[in-house]
Design a protein around this nucleic acid. Structure first.
Length: 551
RNA sequence: GCGCCCGUAGCUCAACUGGAUAGAGCAUCAGACUUCGGAUCUGAGGGUUGGGGGUUCGACUCCCUCCGGGCGCACCA
């Protein structure tokens, strides 16, 4: 619809010799303003110094439409041009939806651009938090949206298995292990307190007996590190899989150490005069790139800070040929981003190809009360516990339904409630209801059981009722919604749209019987139902949520 | 103190990135199908978009300022 109009308006503009202005088309908020509206006349008025309504009139007179498409064009308000399409224009689209079926909504906009989405990337030092869960839902949905818009996507987890954190992890496990033999054995002051460390230690005792006690400390720590890392990695992978999130690549941080990538970055920055030594440390001269202060890359102890591997890792992303790099980070990482971007720019890469998506935090609400979460205390809620409590579908849906820049309040009671209050059930219910109607139509002999050619003889021009056309119109917008949710990196638009689809469907269903004595009309309405089901199913698929046939 | 995010109906949030009369859900109140799923639908009330200035044909959106909340501001990640 928009593409068609854009084309026609452009033709009109060139015929009037208004060049280099691309009309922006919008769906008006008010139904009475038509199906699509444009403000080109007002934009042109500013440039041309003419009355916007006069320009609008010129444009309208120059427009030529194919018969049976646009039924009304009018100039309104300060200079908007409003267009109304024929009902047939929308209902004809039902055929396309049925034909494209599970691919309806996909576009080729991305031109197979090689794209990486990095998300979660939590340290393997403990179980994932609910915050990581939000990031998993956001990252995976963005990745899927990018796939649907024709990008070639790699889902990647940057796995911080190097540095001090891992050392601390090994020490913690080792201490717990020793405590299994000697309850008085000391535990490091800043060690990881969590119960999961004890579990790993017990597992170690089962598989290794007391062997570690007789080893040199360093060797025992290596064993502990390996065992802890493997156990935590497995736990992380498993929880994410329960949320329907799977990664293509786990990029190991320690590979940057062994491959020499870190040294390369430092020496390259040195030759560019962007690194220097001070107080026994190696500094990144970020101020030379317009940032506020210089930062340490290598501590006086010889260990790199996180900043250096982050820069090296981003360079690897470019070296691996990614044309678009999407980083999904929590709000607590905001401060680190400018340094990394400055770093890769200094190394000669185009930082505008990195899109950083920052999401705000999550608070849990139970019985109207905020659940206080603290890692120290026992009331820390893990992602796994959240999934246990409300189920994976609700977890994903609730994490994605708010704009990512907003603080998210996760209402546990609502997420568990199986009623009309829960917006996720509203969608799933619409899908299941359609499935039920189709089953009914089969049992009545209106539809054949096999999907092929089911609607071959359906005559959608019979769909003339207001709620029929309204639903068809909304369904046709799905590809646009997928595209705009993707390009703006605002996945929350999708659940919002799907809610509108469900509402439009329920209204249609309420207004009209689907299976009626007239077989042709039944078939046309069933085609509309099926099209709505396809859009709901595809939308839920993108969100990683199940689309039940019954509930 | 500095940087980023947020502040919109009683509550949770939208508003297509500067467009027309700021919209949904929940909650409240009032209604609707004797056959396809009532986990549905229709309607009503509810607002100085945190306050104040500015930019322009036009501001929830951009700029300045103040207030309130969150997150950062390491030789932690």
């Amino acid at each position: 619809m928009k593409k068609y109009l854009e084309q026609k308006i452009l033709e009109a503009l060139t015929s009037l010799s208004y060049t280099d202005t691309i009309p922006t088309l919008e769906r008006p908020k008010l139904e009475q303003h038509g199906d699509v509206t444009t403000n080109v006349a007002m934009v042109l008025a500013r440039k041309a110094g003419k009355n916007p309504r006069a320009i609008a009139e010129e444009i309208v007179n120059a427009l030529r439409f194919d018969p049976g498409t646009v039924t009304n064009v009018e100039i309104a308000g300060p200079g908007f041009i409003n267009f109304r399409f024929s009902g047939l224009f929308f209902t004809r689209g039902i055929g396309d939806i049925l034909k494209q079926s599970e691919t309806f909504g996909r576009t080729a906009e991305g031109r197979k651009k090689k794209t990486q989405v990095e998300f979660v990337s939590a340290n393997p030092t403990g179980p994932l938090s609910v915050g990581h869960g939000r990031q998993a839902a956001i990252g995976d949905t963005i990745a899927t949206l990018l796939e649907w818009t024709g990008h070639e996507v790699t889902r990647e987890y940057y796995y911080n298995n190097a540095g001090r954190q891992m050392r601390k992890l090994a020490e913690s496990t080792y201490a717990r292990y020793r405590q299994l033999f000697d309850p008085l054995a000391p535990f490091p002051e800043d060690g990881y307190q969590g119960e999961y460390i004890r579990v790993i230690a017990e597992e170690l005792k089962r598989s290794q007996g007391d062997r570690l006690l007789s080893m040199p400390d360093e060797e025992a720590l290596e064993v502990c590190k390996g065992a802890s890392e493997a156990a935590l990695f497995e736990a992380i992978r498993k929880v994410l899989a329960r949320m329907n999130v799977r990664f293509d690549v786990f990029f190991n941080e320690d590979s940057l150490y062994t491959s020499g990538a870190l040294d390369d970055v430092v020496s390259e920055l040195r030759t560019k005069g962007l690194a220097y030594d001070k107080d026994g440390a190696v500094w990144f001269k970020a101020t030379a790139l317009g940032l506020e202060q210089d930062r340490v890359m290598i501590k006086s102890t010889g260990e790199p800070t996180y900043r250096l591997p982050d820069i090296a890792y981003h360079r690897e992303k470019f070296r691996r040929g990614f044309e678009l790099v999407v980083d999904v980070f929590g709000a607590d990482h905001i401060a680190t981003i400018p340094d990394v971007l400055a770093g890769i720019q200094a190394l000669g890469y185009d930082k505008t190809r990195v899109k950083v998506v920052i999401h705000q935090f999550v608070t849990l609400l139970r019985d109207g009360q905020q659940v206080k979460m603290s890692k120290r205390q026992a009331n820390f809620v893990t992602l796994e516990e959240l999934i246990d409590e409300v189920g994976p579908d609700a977890v994903r849906f609730f994490f994605i339904m708010r704009s990512i820049s907003s603080h998210l309040e996760f209402d546990l009671n609502l997420a568990k409630e199986q009623s009309e209050k829960n917006p996720m059930y509203y969608l799933q219910y619409a899908h299941a209801r359609i499935a039920s109607i189709l089953r009914f139509a089969e049992s009545e002999g209106v539809l054949t059981a096999q999907e092929q050619n089911r609607f071959a003889t359906a005559d959608v021009s019979l769909l003339k009722e207001e709620s029929e056309v309204a639903l068809a119109k909304l369904l046709m917008e799905f590809p646009d919604i997928v595209l705009s949710s993707c390009m703006s990196f605002e996945p929350h638009r999708l659940p919002g749209y799907l809610g509108d689809v469900a509402t439009a469907f329920h209204k249609f269903y309420h207004d009209h019987r689907v299976v009626v004595p007239e077989r042709d009309l039944s078939l046309a309405r069933l085609a509309l139902c099926r099209a709505a089901q396809i859009v709901l199913a595809n939308g839920l698929k993108i969100l990683g949520i199940s689309a039940p046939e019954r509930m």
